[in-house]
Design a binder for these strands. Sequence first.
DNA 1: AAAGCTTGTTACCCTCTAGTAACTCCTATG
DNA 2: CATAGGAGTTACTAGAGGGTAACAAGCTTT
Lengths: 195, 195
Amino acid sequence: MSMRLPASARREQILDVSVQVFARNGFHSTSMNDVAEAAGVTKPVLYQHFDSKQDLYMALLEEAGNRLRTAVSKAVVSAANGKEQTEMGFRAYFRWVADDHDAFLLLFGSRANRDEESTTTIRRITAETAKAIAPLIAADIEPEHQRTLAQGLVGLAEGVSRYLVERGDTFDPEVLGQQVADMAWAGLRAVHRTG
Amino acid sequence: MSMRLPASARREQILDVSVQVFARNGFHSTSMNDVAEAAGVTKPVLYQHFDSKQDLYMALLEEAGNRLRTAVSKAVVSAANGKEQTEMGFRAYFRWVADDHDAFLLLFGSRANRDEESTTTIRRITAETAKAIAPLIAADIEPEHQRTLAQGLVGLAEGVSRYLVERGDTFDPEVLGQQVADMAWAGLRAVHRTG
DNA sequence: AAAGCTTGTTACCCTCTAGTAACTCCTATG
DNA sequence: CATAGGAGTTACTAGAGGGTAACAAGCTTT
């Protein structure tokens, strides 16, 4: 029924399609048949490329996480000082959300289902992001609090994005990123003073 | 096998127990048999009190949402100015997280399940919280951005809490709330200036 | 103490869906 | 043109788990 594709191309296509399906409906509400149908193929084909539903899902999470990580870290290294890092970081984050928003929903959307394994992966991704932020927070407070507040800033970006993406709003990542960065940077300095 | 209880008491007990079970394992990984077992009772008893698994789950969400709402709004009304509202609000939020943390996990934990219906409910709860925060943000920026940033602050509190609760850390809600409030308040003023 | 309501249990059914075995079909290559 | 091997399909299994029908055991009220 469907066009024949070489294995590697089919694998890519399945990944592409299933990001969308899982992002839209969540893990448990999406059956392998749904994925197969969306890919224009039947179920056993999926199992030629992935060991299990979980395996496919994990592959998606990893890929999405990688794209997020590289986007942000690339942006941050090009910055001179802390303030610029904050700005570049948030703008890159929102840029990623804007043009890879199925991946965002997959990782952080309301429908993101999380069993033991995916939870671990997603937490790792979040933690990595937080780790990148932590140094921006004044060093004169306890490292514990530093890490906690960094997680808060990640949550801030996440909350903003979830709100906008799930409403279907379009937004300019540069403007939004700048605005959120302003807010975050001022907050970071306040912690410095209050610490 | 289990002690007989009057209907209303049994219903309460089921709610109490299932908050824990669902919070710990998530919706899909928790079977009605699991809930029943945890309640020391058999499955049909659950269905005497709730129409379906979904129905039970929704009841839990509503209850948890109510406790959150009342905790925060009670705290906020007792405050004189914006800054104090911010402080009281965050402190009340973290107080709620600290002593009702199964409810927190149920609503906002990584394992929180979200099908169509629960997503709607949880979004409503988040939106209400954001609505309470929005007026604190400078009125001279577009209402759209105001709402967006308010969602961000909700995400901030959520992110911090999820991090701490899922690590099993204990924390002093007053100290943490004050620190986060400082950060948030400084951020809010920055938006004012930048708007 | 027996009727009658309420609480609880046993033993199912039924659907849904992850995963697979066995087959067909297409296409590249000599 | 014959054939090998990769790509895809049909048709199934198996098990989990939501939900229920029918029955048993307590209270309580007269």
